[in-house]
Design a protein around this nucleic acid. Structure first.
Lengths: 244, 244
DNA sequence: ACAAAAGTGTTCCCGGTACACCCATGG
DNA sequence: CCATGGGTGTACCGGGAACACTTTTGT
């Protein structure tokens, strides 16, 4: 236990936790009150922490997700290291604050992770009260270089979404094709034709019908689908064999 | 200058330097003599070093490339962080060695970079005499977790090669289409049909003919081509606009 | 009955794939 | 003249893109 508290002074991780909330992409931010020049500023940052001396960075990220967001077992991926010399002092205000509450280090290199959660079946009661979901495209300035980290996370998310079946992490187990289409549209910033999109999904054998409809929505009830990871990995395995 | 010598004890970078040598993909390794149980073992490792206290990780990588491989201004990309707790002691031998010659740290997290160079116009005279080019598919065991780092670099290279115009980093300025095809085939581990490959390249407007042939090769002289980065970035810019 | 989203087919074009022969040079 | 790799064209198929109307529910 003591081991976990011994932190590496020059190395941290920061988590960009993306949440999907019925058509809107959100990101979890932590509120910090920063007193600077006798004024208390409300500033926002990404959840993060230093890496423990006996901790893999993935475990640091798991710990941060649990302690600072109350989430466990969610998708998580390291995507980039940020090491600008001035990353803690883009604004003088930030630097004064980190000197007071940080580990007393000028130089912290951070590993960016991004995570994906669905906000409908998300238990917000475990959230710290300083944590809040913000619409991704309404995020103004963040502390340190966290705006840049968010931007790179979004870039990486865009890339990954087209290569790997990760959008399902943002959806409930059972979802409609319109919900699925919306996610792609928001993340990629494009629109798709409904018929073409549905045909394309139908060709992906790993998105399977639940043979179930969602009633009570005020219009024709949509069919529910689910992602089948077993079928996916079978197909993916085949592709790997072909490449290798 | 003194600043550069102050190193962060728990953070390093390692460089997987890929070299292309007329049809063969190579990797630069450094020889280390490790005395263990009264026997001197010849072991190989990736070039790498700790990150300076006032150094961006990209600058550490640049420094390592220059000091340990004699290369400057080459393609370089961070691709993954390795933080396994036992990464320095996969073998007891390695651990004894790092305790003697390292910074006295049990725990070093490393950022993997990969680089690309062409070995034909490569000045080997600047190479340290402990550095050697090895065929990538003949690399046996490496020190620490360096075999794993090499493996991940290869995976990433495969991914990147299909998305970004980086293969040209491995070729001389002027190259033939057969040389280009060979690189794709070796890196991706596939074969392509010559006619289809050439048609595909012809569609990429940024691979342009030099209007020049290579004589003296014992057969019909092949046309020489070059990569035009300006045309590429124009096209790429357009695509970005479309996505955004 | 009406509002709201679900669901569905066809045509066109382009990029991928499979496939076999002649050409220009060096030796 | 022969060995060596360079260079070329055609036919087929599957996926991507454009496009408009009917269906089923809740209210």
């Amino acid at each position: 236990m003591d081991d976990e508290l011994r932190l590496i002074p020059n190395l941290s991780i920061d988590c960009v936790i993306f949440g999907w909330d019925e058509g809107v992409l959100k990101v979890l931010l932590r509120k910090e009150l920063i007193e600077y020049k006798d004024i208390v500023h409300i500033e926002w940052k990404l959840p993060g922490n230093h890496v423990g001396m006996n901790e893999r960075i993935e475990d640091t990220a798991t710990r941060v997700l649990k302690e600072q967001a109350g989430v466990e077992n969610i998708f998580m991926k390291q995507f980039m290291v940020f090491s600008d010399l001035d990353r803690l002092r883009r604004r003088e205000m930030d630097y004064q604050w980190i000197k007071k509450y940080g580990l007393g280090e000028d130089r912290v290199i951070t590993v960016g992770f991004y995570s994906l959660v669905n906000l409908l079946n998300f238990d917000s009661s475990k959230l710290l009260n300083v944590a809040e979901w913000h619409n991704v495209d309404e995020v103004e300035s963040l502390i340190f270089d966290h705006k840049e980290i968010l931007g790179e996370a979004l870039k990486k998310l865009k890339e990954d979404v087209t290569m790997h079946p990760i959008v399902f992490e943002l959806l409930p187990k059972k979802f409609t094709l319109t919900q699925l289409q919306q996610i792609y549209e928001v993340i990629l910033g494009t629109r798709f034709d409904k018929r073409n999109f549905r045909r394309k999904i139908a060709n992906l054998k790993y998105v399977v019908s639940c043979n179930e409809k969602q009633y009570g929505v005020g219009h024709k009830p949509p069919s529910l689908f689910r992602f089948d990871p077993k079928i996916y990995s079978k197909i993916h395995q085949k592709n790997l064999d072909a490449t290798a």
